[in-house]
Design a protein around this nucleic acid. Structure first.
Lengths: 339, 339
DNA sequence: CAGCTCTATGGAACCGCATCCACGGGCGAG
DNA sequence: CTCGCCCGTGGATGCGGTTCCATAGAGCTG
């Protein structure tokens, strides 16, 4: 087995307290004593147990990251940002992939007792009310990414505006029959962003006095395949849309697939705009609304580190940081044809 | 603060040992007593501290995953597999992204004291000898993914064969001027797979009695950009290759970029084959050697769980599992032109 | 009915570290 | 020279569980 602090103390002929002081760089240890202790540590190849240390200090040096559908490229990008932010800190990253409601329950359960991690980063998920309650009552710092909530600081983008940006672009290209493919709104995971993007879509249409047709608004899941079959439905409508705004690039790619299957040319016969600007998008030339995914994770990580460092008071819980969006026009959007 | 097991014991009018027995579902607790305890637990909204539990049990219920360049799509896919394997287990996932040698040092340091995690999964990385020593001397179970090592069980593919598969495909299409773009071989991270793929490439050439030209073998990094500029060099050679085998899809995409920049048509003037079959590959129609990335992570996770469950003896450390490879022919490879 | 076994339960030690508190000795000040 | 203070140090306690061991009582056997 490994040696303990007591072994070191015995070998060095000192007390455990002194060893602990040496380990933690405390003052008030005579140089000769320190040397003896260090020697003993070396001789025994002693390494302190982080576990015991944590229990004693009531800190874990762990940051929990709760992320739904780690599957999705955008989520991965965000986690990468978090990992980068944490790289230079003493904190380690505990990853919780939530792929079902039950798992979500589990993850929050794990964390509400605050001694599993020192802080929590929740990505693209609005915690249910009872969890909010528990998280607040504990003193566990929480930062939200891509999900606003009055109770916690968050890093977000203006999804409504993003939806407007995309839709307005299509309107300006002359499109009037513009469909929307998004997520089911009050879904069990409570994704917030898709809902807001829908609102942006609606607003842009209203602003341009374009009629909103309910049959053009479809909601499915983030999945590529679901979006594809949804889009096939859409493109088989008697009066089919000339443009589609998808609430995520993954879904937009599904729409492109659908167009390919139905032999509908893009952008001549159909314009498609996505959201996120994930890696693939540049390859396939997808027009999309870029949001800084990596950056959102990095900022959230940094914010949490700041709070952990004691800046909690100054920041306050209503601290919300908004990152900027940008429309990236590529080759899947073009002018509406005369018809 | 949170209530402790002692609070529960007091409220229920029993001893802490009994509460512990109830918590852990031990037998020999009278039903009425059990009920009283459960009632107290409920009243206090008590949750046991995993931390203290771990210290006492000398288990952490954490599996550490060390992965270099979490950036890369293939690494992500593997981690997803691990996450899936662990989802139904009581183990949590601690993620260590290694982007520099220093970080690697840090990660291994963290783990060699076994009480940070119960098991370690090392992805695409061969641990340095001194770490092997420490890991072995501790009783920390280790499973390697995409990296063989005699000291640990591992999940691998036959990279040599993969290299042969890709190269032979090109040879059969009539290509003779076949270049290779891979990683620098004895790199600080000690990636193993690229080296073996190089050997497969060499073997296939030798077997077909095609001359191996040193100037056709280039080594850079996993990065897309590096591969692109490497490929540009390659394609500007006086006698430029008619086909390129890239050691990863990421690199193959860089080669495709290079071809686009130089206005070299694929596959008419240049055939490109990659390795991995990451998501994007299907989109861009890249011919590639598919390896089960997700599956490798899942299998490794399961293997580690088995070992943790006590199957360590039967399996032995020399246990190596080889997953199968498959050549996926898409549209970036075609017959060599008569010249 | 004595003696024994088995069940239910509580007390206390332990996991490995941090730290409060007490204490002894050296040293400066009066 | 003595008093008090501060420095260096060690013992004991706490963090919040688990579990060994001792014990009391119930039930059973002869």
């Amino acid at each position: 087995m490994h040696s303990t602090i007591a072994d070191v103390a015995t070998l060095a002929g000192v007390g455990v307290a002194t060893v602990s002081r040496v380990l933690n760089g405390h003052a008030n240890v005579r140089p000769t004593t320190r040397a003896r202790v260090l020697e003993a540590i070396d001789a025994l190849n002693y390494r302190p147990s982080p576990l015991a240390r944590n229990l004693s200090l009531r800190r874990t040096h762990v940051i929990g990251v709760v992320v739904p559908f780690f599957t999705s490229p955008s989520a991965v990008e965000r986690v990468r940002g978090v990992a980068t932010a944490l790289a230079r800190s003493p904190y380690d990253l505990m990853l919780f992939d939530i792929e079902s409601e039950e798992r979500r329950e589990h993850a929050f359960q794990l964390f509400d007792r605050g001694d599993r991690s020192d802080g929590l980063l929740i990505v693209s998920l609005i915690p249910p009310d009872d969890e909010v309650e528990r998280l607040r009552s504990g003193r566990l710092p929480v930062v939200l990414v891509d999900a606003p909530h009055p109770a916690f600081p968050s890093i977000v983008v203006d999804d409504v505006r993003g939806g407007e940006l995309a839709t307005t672009h299509l309107i300006e290209l002359g499109h009037r029959r513009i469909a929307f493919v998004g997520d089911k709104s009050p879904d069990p995971f409570r994704f917030a962003s898709s809902r807001d993007r829908t609102r942006g879509y609606e607003r842009a249409l209203a602003h341009a006095r374009v009629e909103l047709r309910p049959e053009y608004v479809r909601e499915g899941t983030q999945s590529h395949h679901v979006a594809r079959s949804t889009a096939i439905d859409l493109l088989r409508l008697p009066e089919r849309p000339t443009a589609v705004f998808a609430a995520s690039d993954t879904q937009a790619l599904g729409v492109l697939d659908a167009a390919r299957i139905l032999r509908i040319r893009v952008p001549e016969e159909l314009s498609v705009v996505g959201f996120d600007d994930i890696d693939i998008s540049a390859y396939v030339g997808l027009t999309t609304v870029r949001q800084p995914l990596f950056e959102s994770g990095r900022r959230a990580g940094e914010l949490l580190l700041q709070i952990l460092a004691g800046a909690g008071q100054q920041l306050g819980n209503e601290h919300t940081e908004q990152l900027s969006l940008e429309l990236v026009i590529r080759s899947t959007t073009g002018p509406a044809r005369q018809s």
